[in-house]
Design a binder for these strands. Structure first.
Lengths: 128, 128
DNA sequence: TCCTTAGTGAGAATGAGATGTCAATAGCAA
DNA sequence: TTGCTATTGACATCTCATTCTCACTAAGGA
């Protein structure tokens, strides 16, 4: 007999975490999520943030964003293809519109590309 | 009185490690370096690899290559600007020639770029 | 309202990468 | 060749992000 998935509950913390991602216009690190949730008065702990993020990824609501040299960031899934800007001062990550022209890079013979990641590093507007 | 830097010694292991980077045409992870050094019969341990890499970076011979989702890779410093290809099967990293045209990505107002990283993911020629 | 159980919080545990410790080894200047 | 000391090797330890533990809380169906 197959056990059905337990139904997910709508708790204050998960609602708050969802809201944090909805209102943020950029990928967030787990500690940024925690700070935002706590600022909103919904309590929260790091374990809850990680658990919720994992649950949200499983259900397809979030995706993880891997960047060079840091831990993972998370953003709402299903956005159009885009790249990221990583501020060297405040460590925040922003979304960049658009993508490179597809044939910019030529690959060596026999190599096949299935994806690419472009990260621009610099200082963001609020860190000037 | 200023103590002068101790002069560096030319040991079998460091010569071997240097040689590994000279003959590799791609960035190497520490464990790849260790494997290559041991294959060459020069002995070696992971601690030595890390210490040597750090010394080489300090003297400007190597630079670290940060890639999304993995630990650091290292390559000989001072090469012309280039990007990387990360094989999803064998986990090896290769160099790609060339760079994107500088005006490909437009940044939001107030953002300033100082560097960028492009990583292409896929399968390499020897993993087809 | 009651009851089952998913979710929470605090802190401990984990794991992988990287670095430190220390006795033994081996460059290299004298 | 000798003596000084940088380097090595084996292994312990640290770091940091992430996950687990467990007692407690609170959704939400009955």
């Amino acid at each position: 007999m197959i056990k059905s998935e337990p139904r997910e509950r709508s708790t204050r913390q998960r609602r708050a975490i969802r809201n944090v991602f909805e209102t943020a216009d950029r990928p967030l690190a787990p500690d940024e999520v925690l700070a935002a949730v706590q600022r909103s008065g919904a309590g929260g702990s790091l374990a809850t943030v990680y658990r919720s993020i994992r649950a949200f990824i499983d259900e397809g609501y979030l995706t993880s964003v891997e960047l060079p040299g840091t831990g993972a960031f998370y953003e709402i899934a299903g956005k159009t293809h885009h790249h990221h800007f990583s501020c060297l001062k405040c460590r925040r990550v922003y979304e960049l519109e658009g993508c490179l022209p597809s044939e910019t890079l030529r690959l060596p013979r026999g190599f096949r590309a299935v994806a690419h990641d472009l990260t621009v590093f610099g200082t963001c507007a609020s860190c000037r």
